Simulated scan of single mutants.
Amino acid sequence: MDLLLLWEEFINLLNSEKYIVKAYYKKITGIPFLYIKVEDSFDQKKLEHAIRIRAAQVMKGKQLHSETTFVRADHSFYVYRHRFFVPQEKMFCCGNLCVDCIRLKKG
């Protein structure tokens, strides 16, 4: 799975939102940051909801998760640390009676 293509689709979907002026991402020291400029007086909660919805759209049918963390805002410019990642799954039983034990997995 090519995460670069996933990011491109994600950014295109964000840029298609009518209240987002510009969205792009940059990797700084290996950490992807999402930069979003929105129309004036736009609600941050609505923006974060749109990020979650658009991330879910690009991850649909793939074994991926996303994590978004607010970094800073300046008027109508927002910065988030956003990443797509493959969840780690246990491959063996460690004997600690974990709730996600591989022995309890069905199928």
Rank of each mutant, 00 (worst) to 15 (best):
P32S: 06
N15S: 07
K90F: 05
D2W: 01
P87Y: 06
K62F: 14
I31P: 06
V38Y: 00
Q57R: 15
L14C: 11
I36V: 10
V79R: 11
C94M: 02
D2T: 12
C93D: 04
Q63H: 11
I11Q: 06
H82L: 03
K60H: 14
R83L: 02
E89M: 05
G30A: 04
K26F: 00
H65A: 14
L104D: 13
E17K: 11
N12F: 06
I28Y: 10
L34C: 04
C101K: 10
A50Y: 08
C98W: 05
S16E: 11
Y25K: 00
K90H: 10
Y19G: 05
V38G: 01
G95M: 04
L5V: 11
K105H: 09
K60A: 15
R72N: 14
K62E: 15
M91T: 15
I53N: 14
C98L: 01
L34I: 02
E9R: 14
R54E: 15
G30Y: 00
F42R: 07
K106C: 03
I51M: 05
C93E: 07
W7N: 07
Q44P: 01
V71Y: 06
L64D: 09
Q88W: 04
I11M: 03
R72A: 14
R83T: 08
F84P: 05
T29H: 09
K105W: 09
K27A: 12
R83V: 02
L6W: 04
F42V: 02
K106T: 13
F85I: 05
K105D: 11
T29I: 02
E39A: 04
Y24W: 05
R81E: 12
E17Q: 09
C93K: 06
C98N: 04
C98F: 08
E89H: 04
L64F: 14
G95T: 07
I36C: 00
L34A: 00
I102H: 10
I102A: 07
K26G: 00
V58F: 11
F70D: 09
Q44I: 08
L104P: 06
P87K: 09
Y78G: 00
N15C: 10
H75D: 12
A55E: 14
R103K: 15
L5W: 03
L64S: 09
A73L: 03
S41W: 00
K27R: 12
K60E: 15
F42I: 08
L5K: 13
V86R: 07
V38C: 02
Y19F: 12
K46Y: 04
L104M: 15
E48H: 07
R54P: 04
I28E: 12
